[in-house]
Simulated assay, not measured.
Amino acid sequence: MKRLLILFFIVVVGGLGYLFYMNEMIKPQLYTGTYTDGFEADIFTDKNSGQAYWIYGDKSIMEPLKKEMNLRREKTGEPYITVNMTLEGIDRGKAKGEIAEEGDKDLEVIRIINIK
């Protein structure tokens, strides 16, 4: 019985270690598409796949993006702003947000390359 517990412990710890290792090994990909910002909207749609992503990222990335979108909103008077954007990000799988639709995914933004 003691051997089984030790074996179980080794398998669990090894498996968790592998998952953390693989998570760190995921490399950011280049995404180009449209980003829509507005009330309860932070949606990026990839041009190549058509996949919709809810985006999130470090404060140092997302705050300047929000500032830019608010400036554009002030200029146009429109509540929702859509721009073309290229970014580096990591697809984190199924979206976890409360208002996410079936098939939506989460995209962690690592770097914004350009906004047009």
Rank of each mutant, 00 (worst) to 15 (best):
I10D: 00
E40Y: 11
T76H: 00
Y80H: 03
A100H: 10
I110G: 02
F39M: 01
D46P: 05
I26Q: 09
T34F: 11
I90D: 00
K96H: 09
I90G: 00
P28Y: 05
V12L: 08
K2I: 12
M85A: 04
I110C: 05
K27V: 07
V109E: 11
G17D: 05
G14V: 09
Q51H: 08
D42F: 08
T32W: 04
N70V: 08
G15W: 04
Y80A: 00
R111H: 04
K75F: 13
K105A: 13
D46W: 06
M1K: 06
P79C: 02
I10Y: 01
N114I: 01
M25A: 15
R92T: 04
M62F: 02
K67G: 15
D58H: 13
Y18N: 08
K47S: 10
P28D: 01
I90T: 02
K47E: 14
I81H: 10
E63H: 14
N70Q: 13
M22C: 03
R72C: 05
M22L: 07
I112S: 00
F39G: 01
T32R: 12
F20I: 12
E101L: 04
Q51K: 12
E40D: 13
Y56M: 15
Y56K: 14
V11A: 14
T45A: 07
D42G: 10
K75G: 09
L5I: 13
L4K: 14
G17V: 06
R72F: 03
A41G: 00
I55C: 01
A95W: 01
E24V: 09
K66A: 05
T82P: 01
G50S: 07
T45G: 04
K94G: 03
I61N: 05
Y31M: 13
I6P: 06
L65P: 02
Y21I: 04
E40K: 14
D91G: 02
G14K: 13
V109H: 11
S49A: 03
I26C: 05
R111N: 02
I81Y: 10
Y21H: 11
V11E: 06
V12G: 00
E24A: 12
L30A: 13
N84F: 13
Y35V: 05
R72S: 02
I113T: 08
I10R: 01
R72V: 03
Y18R: 10
Y80W: 01
A95R: 07
G77M: 12
I99A: 06
V11R: 06
S60Q: 12
L7P: 00
T82K: 02
E98Q: 14
E102G: 08
I55A: 01
T32H: 10
D58N: 15
L87K: 09
F9E: 07
